[in-house]
Amino acid sequence: MIRGLILMVLAMLAAPLAAQDSLPPAPYAYKQLDDPAQEKTAQDLMMTLRCLTCQSQSIADSDAPMAGDMRHQVRTRIAEGEDPEAIRAWLIERYGDWVSYQPQVTAMTWPLFAAPIVLLLFAALIARKRFGRARATGDKS
């Protein structure tokens, strides 16, 4: 676990250290939108988009320049009135499902969504069998 933490930590640090560009961050990388409702929409979306260069963080909490540029894209597009899901789709079109932390239901990912239902059904089945029979036999005795 310790090593895991170290890896995680280094992973988070690796990106900002590797890219030593000299430009200041993109305008909306560290600047909020004026409209609080729009900013909240942008923030909610950014939390669910994966940073391309750091790989185990969302763009909402990464210092990597590319994450900053991506926040700029998200905020600008939200400010222009674009729908957050359209922005997600725009990124998925370019980088695949990987870029979104919210898995889409596809031929490949449906088991993820079926799993909770299957688990609940299975639990209900066991409970019914055990306790259902328990009551029945209990009544007889």
Binding site: R50, G96, Y101, M108
Partner: peptide
């Protein structure tokens, strides 16, 4: 059940990787 979900969600990207598809499973899931 929660354990099953966490285990599956954590490992799922590994499973799809075997089929050359990259997915991320994160907080929204």
């Amino acid at each position: 059940g929660v354990l099953g979900i966490v285990l599956m969600g954590t490992l799922y990207p590994l499973v799809t990787e075997a089929f050359d598809t990259k997915v991320s499973v994160g907080p929204p899931y």
